[in-house]
Design a protein around this nucleic acid. Structure first.
Lengths: 122, 122
DNA sequence: TAAACACATGAACAGATGTTCATATATAGT
DNA sequence: ACTATATATGAACATCTGTTCATGTGTTTA
């Protein structure tokens, strides 16, 4: 332990440990995609949209009304959710109904929500 | 159904539904905190740090070496993780060891990771 | 006590992100 | 055809975010 070797202008203290952990790291791309995935949940507007869609499918203008935001803002965010394959849509005339497209979402959402709740108690 | 009333320059199509869902929405602050929580996971560097810490506690310079980044960048991100109460630290002389501070994290991480993996298959 | 080291931190900067505004598209009703 | 409506979208803008750089703090060692 406490071997030292310079690299990238940074000293390594536990070279063996670093090498071992390096071997367990998933491919860069997977961790990048994972971060991108969580990023979608990292916005209040999108979280509120998702929560609403847990209750029921909704059209764009109803979501906008519910959240007190412009139709444009909601539409832009729905596109982000759509690109992330978290929601799907269904057209009925000129009205577009959005709903959830994935079962994992609620589980992840709930787990985060539970975490927040417990944090509050402390 | 299909009642209409203007509000915030936005038409409501299903007023009753909107009112019903409005009643189920958690307090603004909770959803805000939830988004803030997920935001922490929404960065590649922090995701990689968390993954590394799943394997073992690590000191700052070893993490920097592992990820090929500067000590400063890592230190800044560790502060974000620390503020979010996702990691804790332990000082040993001038070396600071970081480790995970919460059990939920791995569950949330894994659920997201599983999601990504399944997405890849399609 | 001086120098080396591990880490933290503030300022600055570039790039990303979310909303607004104007406008386009597509469908429905008259 | 013309108008109204529901949604989508591009550009612009302000704000947020992550890294770098320089430097500060605290600890160890010579």
């Amino acid at each position: 332990m406490t071997e030292k070797s310079p690299c990238c202008d940074v000293t390594v203290i536990h070279a063996a440990l670093v090498d071992k952990i390096r071997g367990t790291m998933p491919p860069e791309e997977e961790l990048f995609n994972l971060a991108e995935f969580f990023k979608v949940f990292g916005d209040t507007t999108r979280i509120r949209i998702l929560y609403a869609l847990f209750q029921s499918e909704m059209c764009v203008c109803d979501i906008a009304h519910l959240l007190g935001m412009t139709q444009s803002a909601i539409s832009h965010q729905l596109r982000v959710l759509k690109n992330a394959k978290l929601v799907r849509y269904r057209k009925e005339g000129r009205v577009v109904y959005y709903s959830l497209d994935d079962e994992h979402i609620k589980a992840i959402f709930d787990q985060g929500y539970q975490h927040i709740k417990e944090q509050q108690e402390n």
